[in-house]
């Protein structure tokens, strides 16, 4: 590993104003990449050294215009991080929310990937990393039908990308985070529940956004030359352990 392994690379990170996406953007900047970070607000705040781009994944027109940006900028790295979980039990689950979740977590990321392919082909180098989820691909979980379906789809999209583009030097993988210490957790769980969650993993603590960003940086960087079509769990041993 050189000090600036991503020197000369352009990366796009969706949802870079906070949490996991912000940590990934910070790490990419530290590794020498130029970074375009997206957020939903007109004037969102991204880490120092990043360019900000407004993107509403729920809005088809906004996604279309972001795709034009992606085509023009021709990033080497695309990290589809932004998403929404929209938890609903089956008695409440409705098609409108389900579709809205697929739009944000699956359809918009698919379009951003598609827009990046011509540039990556030109560079003869590209890395896609999708931030997936444990729910949907590794276990079913109450209230996560919309999220699970969308994230399982995101994994499928990355596997398909990987299969078509491997020979062109373009690798695609997903990262499935366990319980990571972000500002999303307190919105979904009480303080006591978060402490209990941390203890559910054999490692006995939450993961940090920095730890997650380090894995994404490996998969997106020059040290990864032969891993593709995989989903890597970063969960402190949670999923595999009863």
């Amino acid at each position: 590993m050189t000090d600036k392994p991503l020197q000369g690379k352009l990366a796009i990170v969706t949802g870079a104003t906070r949490g996991i996406g912000r940590a990934i953007a910070e790490r990419f900047v530290a590794d020498g990449a130029a970074v375009i970070g997206t957020g939903t607000k007109p004037d969102g705040e991204v880490p120092e050294g990043c360019r900000y781009q407004q993107l509403q994944l729920s809005d088809e027109a906004s996604v279309d215009s972001m795709c034009r940006v992606v085509e023009k900028e021709a990033p080497h790295i695309v990290v589809n991080n932004a998403g929404i979980s929209n938890p609903q039990g089956w008695d409440k689950l409705d098609a409108k929310t389900f579709k809205a979740t697929q739009q944000i977590d699956l359809i918009a990321p698919m379009m951003l990937c598609k827009a990046a392919i011509p540039g990556m082909r030109k560079h003869k180098w590209g890395r896609f990393v999708g931030i997936s989820a444990l729910s949907g691909t590794y276990f079913g979980r109450p209230t996560r039908a919309s999220l699970g379906a969308a994230k399982a789809g995101l994994v499928a999209v990355h596997m398909s990308l990987a299969s078509e583009l491997a020979r062109d030097g373009i690798l695609a993988n997903c990262v499935a985070p366990g319980f990571i210490d972000t500002d999303v957790l307190p919105q979904l769980f009480t303080k006591e529940e978060i402490e209990a969650l941390a203890k559910r993993a054999p490692i006995g603590r939450l993961g940090t956004t920095k730890e997650l960003a380090a894995l994404v940086a490996f998969l997106a960087g020059p040290d990864n030359t032969y891993m593709t079509g995989q989903q890597i769990l970063i969960d402190g041993g949670f999923t595999r352990t009863l």
Partner: peptide, 30 residues
């Protein structure tokens, strides 16, 4: 490269995994 990443301090939260470094062999078929 993958082994050394997992063995380094860069890895803080990945454990209990079997990481396939296989050029897509295991998960992709044409």
């Amino acid at each position: 490269k993958a082994v050394v990443w997992l063995a380094s301090a860069e890895n803080g939260y990945v454990t209990g995994q079997n990481i396939l470094v296989d050029g897509g062999l295991s998960r992709l078929k044409e």
